[in-house]
Each structure stands twice: as C-alpha cells, then as structure tokens.
Design a binder for these strands. Structure first.
Length: 579
DNA sequence: GCCGTTTTCGGCCCGACTGTTTTCAGTCG
C-alpha cells in the first residue's frame, strides 16, 4: 500500500473520530501521523519490513500509531476504523466536505434522521427539516444547499498532481513490460489543467498489447471497466481515478497524442481547419480528401504532432495553450509566445518554516532550494492574525529577519527575509509598518473574512496593493480546488492597481490552489501586471510543486519576461527594492 | 495518541465569525 493511501486511511479515521466526538487531541495525533506519513520519503511498508528501522523514529508516530500502521499493512484496515465504520456509514465522511457542516452537525443529523448522504441531506434542506434540529435554521439550510451544488460540480475530478502521480506509477509499472517503447500521458494532464477528470495514457511499441494485459492486472486496479484489443479502462486506486490506456501503432502516435490531448474545442477548430485545407484529421492521422470530399487512405501526417501542425500551416502548439483561445491564429502567424519553463525559474518566493506552520527549518528549506539549482529564495512565514499557524508578531518578525540575514549567503544561496502578511478585513496589514520595512519581500494574502460583498472585498484588496511595503499579492482569488471558489471581487480593478503599484500577482503552485488560473493570468498580463510563481511550500518536498505553477503560467501565455523570479538575483533585487 | 520529561503524566495553537440564541456551540482557518 502506498504511503498516501495509508495517510488517507488515518485521516479518514480522524474524521470519523471527530464525528463520534472523541478526544480532540487524539484526533490531532492521527492527523499529524497522516501528514508525517504522506510526507515521508520512504515507503512505510518497507520500513516495517526492515528490522533495522523503526516507524516510531518518524516524528509523529509513537507506539499506538505504529501498531495501527502494522495492522493496516497486514490487512488493509485497523480495529478502530472498523468500529467507527460500523457506527457511521462511510458516506458520512462525504458530508464533511459540505461547507457549513462539521462533525457535530453530521453526528446529530445521523442520530435524528439516519441521513448520511449528500442526496439525503439535500432532501432535508428542501423539506426544511434541518431547521427542526437545535441551533440550525433557515440560513444554514440555504448555505448547505449552495455548498451541495458546489460540491457536486467538483465531484469526480482530481487534482493535477494526483493524476500526475498515478500516471508516473503506472508508467513505471508498464515500462517493465517487454516491447513497450513509450508511455505518454495525454488529456488534461498533458495540458496542465488544474483538475483532471480521467487519465489518458498512450502506449506504443510491439509490446503495447501486452501492456494492456498487464494494465488490467495492475495491483491497484479496483475495477476493470472495459478491455478490448486497443484500449482498456479501469478505476485505479482507492480514489477511483478512471484510467484509459490505449495501444497505438507508431505511425499514428502523433495523431493519437494530438487527438487525446484535446481540448475538445481546440480539436474541433483544428479539424475544421484541416477540412478547409483539403484534409481530414482524426486520431489515426491526417488524410487527404478525395474529389468526393471524403477522406482517402492517403495519410500525409500522423507519426508526430509536429508534422500534423506543420501540414496545417501551423507552428507546433504547446499543449497548455490548446483551448481554442487564439492559439491557432497565433500559430498561423508564427506569433506564439515563447512560454516560460521550469528551467527559467531562479528562485522560490513563498514558503513556510517551523517558525510558523511549516514542517522544516529555514536552513532545510534553503538547502533544498539550493539543490534545485535556485539562486535565491524568500522565507515568508505567516503573520500574527493566523494564530492557528502561530503567526509572527512584530517582535518575532524582527528577530526572524535578523536570523535570515545571518543565514543569507552562508549556504551558497541568497536568502531574502519575507512574510506572508495577512490582509485584515479593512485592507490594512496585519503588521506595523516598521516591521514590514525590515523585510525584503512582503506578500499580502487574504485568509479570513472571505464572504464580503464584492465592493468591500475589492476595496480591501486595493488598499493592500497600495501599501508601499507589499511586493506581491498571494493566491489572489483564494480558491481551493475541489473545495471552495475564490472570494468575489473586481479582479480587473485590482490587477490594474497592482500593475500601477508594481505589485506582482502570485501564481501559487500549491496543487490545492493553483491560483491564479489561465484566464485571469491573461487578463492581468494584458493590464500590465507582472507575476511571481511560488510554491507556498510547508515542507522541502513541496518546493518541487513549482512545475505546476509553471504549467499555470504557461496556460496563461506567460513568457520568462513576465515572471520576476526568472530574473538573475541582482536584477531581482533591483525590482523588489524599487521604492 | 504523541511528546518530553520536573521519567509517568500533563500539555497539546486559538481567535473570530455565524447563526442561533439570549450566552454560546459549531465551524473555519
């Protein structure tokens, strides 16, 4: 079993314990344990098997959880979890994802109505039965109905990094099949879309058929949906991500890659273009049209994507741009932007340490940044409004900045002192000016009061952007993927102000946020904004999420020149010290 | 349940908001 799945089992049990009203500190231990295991670089199964190692050496794992881990690995569950699942149906966990309902309410709803599903909950709200329970009223019913609608929208989709991980695991497994030449992800994963509905994998080589056979016997397959000569589909993993694996002949690999990468809108436009030029395009290749207007068997392209685009009079279009948002016209004019790449990134400008809610020290984070080949980083812990994260007050800011200055240069990498400063409800900064003035890089972020009126939220963000110490606006929309929409505000107005005040908009690379997204990036760029791409890392391994932020930037048509943290350190320093 | 230890049990992040109350429980971050 994968660490991620073990962690999920512990976290779910913690949720169930919360519904059962158990000791909150014990629940927290389960959550801590889950986080520790998820972040642990080595497979827990291996650690348990190795007599020279102890799982209790992992911080957060003691005797109790060690026994639980052993039981999970041995039989796929553990006693406490089984007991709780006998008391509460597993669907009750789903209700926790409905905003406005917590464990106490879910327990009460279950006790009173024996309702534990989203559908059942919706009925209770519509029939105004929820408000018969203590402390629940009409407003809550409305809120829950809204949350249910939002929840349904995101159901069945998966975060980009989860889909990527599944693709990598599967590729490693299928790569061992003899005669497999290459395995390539297509679909929205290849386009770098922030969420993925299902995973398309293409496999070529003489062993492609054998790969299909191996795929349906992949140990993590939960359910085989279909199995043909050229394609197999299955639900993979406990999470049930649908994977479609297609075996392809080499001569049509490019056509299939193009076809299955999408987007649908891009492909429709491309096929229309092919028709106008006297071709027919499908997943097997680009074929010449006959005198009758029907496709002949004369294949003029198909082995690579490049030759297909070329035949259609287009430069090759990077997958991230394939949304039929002007990329075909630009490719025709040879005017596609030279998109920013991961290799362009020279620093990471948003991360947390053990000083607040991060899991590694400032030295550990800096070392990891150096290993990634960066020239610089900014340490940006939370400010005091985020009490739950042990945010820094003015005194600690000053002390911490001094520590950062001492460290700067010592590890062979520039370390800038920074803060992720909360924007208070009225738009003022959570820290006094003289504290902010000590820092090199101030990110202003909203973490509270997210349900203000549009005008109030807009004014709040405008005031933050106007603050002379602020250099970047952190995760500007506040969205959390599959969980919460961004707060409403006049983005255009704020972006204009950011451009005017030389405040960069952050593209937050954390897989749960990926905020900003493509349409807003393009809009902001057109208004003259600059950007930073940062990971918001709370652990050294989160620093590797930079690639997701770069994908978002590419989807937003950005070049290296649009992104501050592609600058060499001397130039970057000039940019942040301009006032 | 973990941790650190004044080695055997006490402490473990908490403030603000919301909707429901009429003094606060539950939720959120």
């Amino acid at each position: 079993m994968e660490n991620r799945e073990i962690a999920q089992m512990l976290a779910e049990t913690a949720d169930l314990m919360e519904i059962a009203g158990e000791d909150p500190f014990r629940i927290r231990s389960y959550r801590n344990g889950a986080a520790a295991i998820e972040a642990y670089p080595e497979r827990i199964e291996e650690v348990l098997r190795n007599p020279n190692k102890k799982v209790t050496d992992i911080p957060g794992i003691g005797k109790g959880l060690a026994a639980v881990l052993e039981e999970i690995v041995r039989r796929g569950s553990f006693e406490r979890r089984d007991e709780l699942l006998a008391r509460y149906p597993p669907t009750a966990l789903e209700l926790l994802k409905i905003q406005g309902l917590g464990p106490k309410s879910i327990a009460m709803i279950w006790e009173h109505f024996r309702v534990s599903t989203v559908d059942g909950l919706e009925r209770l709200c519509r029939e105004h039965k929820l408000q018969t329970l203590p402390r629940m009223g009409a407003k809550l019913e409305e809120k829950v109905l809204r949350s249910i609608a939002q929840y349904r929208q995101s159901a069945g989709r998966f975060l980009l990094h989860f889909a990527e991980q599944t693709a990598q695991d599967l590729s490693a497994y299928l790569g061992q099949v003899a005669g497999v030449e290459r395995i390539t992800p297509a679909g929205s994963l290849r386009r770098g879309k922030e969420t993925v509905g299902d995973l398309d994998l293409l496999v070529t080589g003489p062993g492609a058929a054998a790969a299909l056979e191996a795929f349906v016997h992949y140990p993590r397959v939960q359910q085989v949906l279909s199995r043909g000569e050229n394609k197999a589909s299955a639900k993979v993993g406990l999470e049930g991500l649908q994977v479609d694996l297609r075996a392809l002949p080499r001569e049509s690999f490019g056509a299939a890659l193009q076809y299955f990468s999408g987007s649908k809108e891009h492909n429709i436009a491309l096929r229309n273009r092919a028709l106008r030029l006297g071709y027919s395009l499908n997943e097997y290749g680009l074929f010449r049209l006959g005198a009758d207007g029907k496709a002949t068997h004369e294949r003029v392209a198909g082995e690579t994507e490049e030759e297909i685009y070329e035949r259609l009079g287009l430069d090759w279009i990077p997958p991230e741009l394939r949304e039929n948002q002007g990329e075909i016209e630009a490719a025709e004019r040879h005017a596609l932007p030279k998109l920013v790449t991961l290799a362009d990134i020279r620093g990471d400008l948003h991360m947390h340490t053990t000083e607040t809610d991060g899991r590694a020290t400032l030295e550990e984070m800096a070392k990891q940044c150096r290993e990634l080949g960066y020239q610089y980083l900014a340490i940006t812990d939370h400010s005091k409004a985020l009490a739950m994260a042990n945010g820094l007050d003015e005194k600690r800011v000053t002390e911490f900045a001094a520590r950062v200055r001492r460290l700067d240069g010592e590890l062979g990498i520039r370390v800038f002192s920074g803060i992720e400063c909360d924007i208070r409800r009225d738009g003022s900064m959570d820290l006094a000016d003289d504290a902010l003035a000590e820092l090199d890089f101030v990110i202003a972020s909203v973490h509270s009061h997210m349900n203000l009126e549009v005008s109030e939220m807009t004014d709040r963000l405008l005031r933050a952007v106007e603050c002379r110490y602020v250099r970047a606006l952190g995760h500007p929309t506040g969205r959390v993927l599959l969980h919460r929409d961004g707060y409403p505000f006049d983005f255009e107005q704020v972006a204009r102000a950011a451009a005017r005040h030389k405040v960069a908009l952050e593209i937050n690379a954390s897989p749960e946020r990926l905020d900003l997204h493509a349409p807003l990036i393009r809009l902001a760029r057109s208004l003259g904004c600059k950007f930073v791409i940062s990971t918001d890392a709370h652990h050294p391994k989160h620093l590797l999420h930079m690639r997701f932020g770069v994908s978002m930037a590419r989807r937003g048509w950005l070049t290296a020149a649009d992104v501050w943290n592609t600058l060499p350190v001397e130039e970057f320093e000039k940019v942040i010290r301009w006032r």
